[in-house]
Amino acid sequence: MPRIFFIKVGQNYIIIMSAAPGSAMDSLSAALKCNIIPNQEYLLQGSVLDQYVEVLLHRLRGLCDNVDSGPESFHDHELSFALRAQGSGAAPMVLPLRVRRALDSPESPWQLRYVGQQELGDKNRPTVVRSSIDMACSSTIVEFLTELGCRMDFEYIARGYMFRKGRMKITVSKIFKMGNMNTKPGEGVEPISQSYLVELSVLAPTGQDAIAEDMRIFAEQLRPLVQLEKIDYKRLGNMS
């Protein structure tokens, strides 16, 4: 029976599922201290209308590395789970967890990912910084999370292209609503909007803020086509 641990790192939590708690926790905390775990995600987001996405892809092909073989496409299915626990205060503590799988390469492992709240850092910081911990897992993760008490909030399908420029990863993806599960895969999905989501992200260990500057410069180069910005989700939440 595996044991599950929640470790608080900053304002975020790490879940450890381990059979031998002592050794795993020791080595993990040692690794965390050495800053070798890429647990920070630097992120910029934007969107582009469907009719201009070709232009953006063209520009990205010109800017990014190794696109001689064409852009890499992806087709992922993401499920978002939340673990609600009664915290010490009145507000319930919500731990979001995301499960993602690649529909176009079934042999790839599934991915469990924890994405934290964005850090309330410097306003002048060019990108959103949030903690992100991901791990590969098998397809039984959904059952496992359900057993654990997680509830699925929503799910969607993302389909698009990804590019690489040095350590930066750029994804241009269309988000689809999940239709009726009974229909065949590929059918019964409808796009959520008339635009593509563009994300520029880097996973890096803590304290590598220099990469954010590189990202800003890269985002500048895409400027007229797509505006990549820090998006504050809290403010969006208030708006709705």
């Binding site: 590395d65 992806f74 992922d76 993401e78 993602r100 990804m162 690489r164």
Partner: peptide
């Protein structure tokens, strides 16, 4: 050194 495989699913680390 230059041709790293892309992750699948796309949110995976490079």
């Amino acid at each position: 050194n230059t041709h790293h495989p892309f992750p699948h699913p796309a949110t995976g680390p490079l």
